[in-house]
């Protein structure tokens, strides 16, 4: 049940325990217990809402920042990654293969806000050797959800 439950929760965190139980053909008690276990084990780390911020707050901006980092002898990238992740402005941090080391998603009130954050905070971290900032121009899909208008259901409703 675990994998199928996770799949359903990742699609829609607002399914009720009863709905999940019905879809998985198990008891609501079993679903509730499994969710509790998943939360305790840190498999389920949180529940959030997918929001198209452009529709409420057109001025806020996001950027993806590529960081090149000198890894520490015994800690590797761990220390700097943790430090970057602890900023509230940072939405996501990924260690990357390829041309750079850390991919950092930053959100700010406006362009200057983000630029200032990168220049003052990220670029000044000791082991960071370079940064490249890419501003997000438009979001089309977020967490598997399409943000633009979906295609209308054009299936012929009178067909049997």
């Amino acid at each position: 049940m675990r994998n199928e439950l996770l799949k359903l929760l990742s699609q829609n965190a607002r399914y009720t325990v009863e709905q999940l139980a019905t879809m998985l053909s198990v008891t609501p008690e079993a679903v509730a217990a499994e969710i509790e276990t998943l939360e305790k084990e840190g498999v389920v780390c949180g529940y959030k809402t997918v929001i198209d911020w452009e529709k409420v707050d057109a001025t806020s901006v996001s950027a993806i920042i590529e960081l090149n980092v000198v890894p520490k002898a015994d800690l590797g990238f761990e220390e700097v990654a943790q430090k970057v992740a602890s900023y509230p402005e940072v939405e996501a941090v990924y260690l990357m293969s390829g041309g750079y080391d850390l991919n950092v998603v930053v959100k700010g009130k406006n362009l200057h806000d983000v630029a200032r954050f990168v220049a003052r905070e990220l670029a000044t971290i000791d082991s960071v050797t370079s940064t490249a900032t890419h501003f997000v121009m438009r979001r089309y899909k977020e967490m598997d959800v399409k943000l633009c208008e979906g295609e209308p259901d054009d299936r012929g409703t009178y067909l049997l």
Partner: peptide
């Protein structure tokens, strides 16, 4: 099929939730 007429009515409503399509 008498169903066509029925779904033509549905088509004039804008918030129809259909479970009709096969």
């Amino acid at each position: 099929s008498g169903i066509r007429k029925f779904f033509d009515i549905a088509a004039t409503m804008d918030d129809v939730i259909s479970l009709g399509v096969g």
